[in-house]
Amino acid sequence: MSRTRTTLRSASVAVRAMILFTLVLGVGYSLAITAVGQLTAPAQANGSLVRNAAGETVGSTLIGQSFTDAEGAAVPGYFQSRPSAAGDGYDAGASSGSNLGPENADLLDAIGERRAAVADLEGVDPGHVPVDALTASASGLDPHISPAYALLQVPRIAEARGLPEAEVRDLVTSTLQERDLGYLGEPRVNVLVLNLALDAPRDER
C-alpha cells in the first residue's frame, strides 16, 4: 500500500517535471534559438539560399544538386557533382548514403560504370578519375567535389561554353575553398557556386 502510494507520488512529480521540461526545453529553448537565428544570422538560419543572376532562388549553397538533363545525362556546360544515393540523386527530402559495403558487388559494378562514364565524358584515361567522382557521399547531398575532379572537368566546360580553358581554370581556382583555418577538413570546390559563376555575365564574375 505505502509502496503504491510512493510510486503514485513519484509519478505525479514525473508528470509535472515532463510538462515543465516540455515548456522550457521543447518550446522555450527552441523558440529562443530561432529568434536569435532569425535576428542575427537570417541567411544561414533559413538555409543559405542562393539566387541566380536573374534573382531567382536556385538552391542552397550547402546542398548539392544534379547538373543533368531530364534523362539524367550530364549537361556538358556544367561542372558535375559526386554520385548521390539520396532518392534519384540529390533529393533533399531523402538524404542518404548508399550504405553499400566494401565487398558488395553492386558497389563494385557502380564504381566501374562511373569510372567509364566520367572517363568518356571528360575524354580522359579511366585511371585518372578521382575517387570522389566514383563514390556516393554520406548525405547524398554533398555540395562539394575535390579540386582534382573540378580541374578534370575544365576542358569539357571550356569547349561546351566556347571559353578559353585558362578562364575556366581561373574560375575554379577562385571558387576553391581551402581547409578551414588552413588545416581542418579537406580542400573543396562548391559545384553550385562554381556553376552559378559560370552562368554569371563575364564582367560580374
Binding site: 559526386r82 548514403g97 559495403g101 558497389l107 570522389d132 563514390t135 557521399s137
Partner: peptide, 15 residues
C-alpha cells in the same frame, strides 16, 4: 570497393 575506387570515400563527405 575502396581498392577499385582508389580510396575509402564511399559514404564520406568531401569536406
Amino acid at each position: 570497393a575502396p581498392q577499385l575506387a582508389g580510396g575509402a570515400m564511399e559514404g564520406k563527405e568531401q569536406r
